[in-house]
Amino acid sequence: MHLAYPAVLAALLFCVGLYGVLARRNAILMLMSVELMLNAVNLNLVAFDVWLQERLHTGQALALFTIAVAAAEIGIGLAIVLLVYRTRGSSEIDRLRDLRETDTGPDAGAASGADGPEEQAGVQATTDSGRQTS
């Protein structure tokens, strides 16, 4: 088999995942796209391992490690997404803009947002607790 086939497939899968990460608004859909990108990397690892025929099977061992790290990542990521959903009432990453830099200072940025006064209160509470822990 030509090595070009799995390599091209992996490159295309990676770019599909890249599009998903950049274009999706829901955080869980973004995590799905990250999984697609990780799978593209795994496909590359396995293909190159079969090509190089190493004694230690570096590519396959690394693919196994990547799968385990991806499982850990999806667990932590979903826990964070659920925490954000519980705190904010939505898991849309477009709205998580508290750490955004603004030209006129953080207060004007928070006031000019399209969210209601409750959202501002939540922002205030978050920054307060963050300041307390730091």
Partner: peptide, 13 residues
């Protein structure tokens, strides 16, 4: 489901 920067994402991909 898709955010506003979809054309930019498509171009980058």
């Amino acid at each position: 489901a898709d955010s506003g920067n979809r054309p930019v994402a498509l171009a980058a991909a």
